[in-house]
């Protein structure tokens, strides 16, 4: 029999691919995603992490550590502004983990937890950006033009990715 690739390895590689896809999608579809005044920010990175929280063993995969690492790279490479996502990513992961444990493990609760995760992720990003004067949007503008569209696109991505990714982790659990 062929030797199977360890799931931890797949998790990390998938994480980096998701990270780069975020930037590539933003670049290729920038006409659609960032058309004024709305902006739909894809966050496949966060999706991959949260799905790993749902299906995988977070102790074995070191999800919190990897979320901090990917957050640091996100700060360094994409925004050039250190100290923002390096804390937001682990916080969101911790929050999702805590809430998900209280709920029955099915698609609907996953959907709810993901909704919460994206909301916290985008809102904290907005707070950090307005703190340093990167944005001058008001809270109302932010909710209508950024939060709502971002939630919509990310929930669609999540609904599409949930069922293909579940068996990947399940097959490695035995």
């Amino acid at each position: 029999m062929k030797r199977r690739i360890p799931i931890a390895f797949i998790f990390v590689i998938g994480e980096f691919i998701a990270f780069f896809l975020d930037g590539s999608l933003s670049q290729i579809l920038s006409g659609t995603l960032y058309r004024y005044p709305n902006s739909l920010v894809p966050s496949l990175t966060l999706m991959w992490l949260i799905l790993a929280v749902f299906f995988g063993d977070s102790k074995k995969l070191h999800i919190t550590m990897w979320s901090a690492i990917i957050g640091f790279i996100f700060d360094m490479y994409y925004t050039g502004l250190l100290g923002v996502y390096v804390f937001i990513f682990p916080l969101v992961i911790y929050l999702c983990q805590t809430v998900y444990q209280m709920l029955p493990p099915n698609f609907m609760s996953g959907f709810l937890v993901y909704f919460l995760g994206i909301t916290v992720w985008v809102s904290l990003g907005f707070v950090a950006n307005s703190f340093i004067g990167q944005t001058s949007d008001s809270v109302a503008q932010f909710m209508v033009n950024t939060l709502a569209p971002t939630l919509a696109i990310n929930l669609v991505f999540m609904a599409l990715a949930y069922f293909p990714i579940e068996p990947l982790y399940r097959s490695h659990r035995q």
Partner: peptide, 8 residues
Amino acid sequence: TRTPSSWA
């Protein structure tokens, strides 16, 4: 690539 953020 482009920064996936609505502000930057």
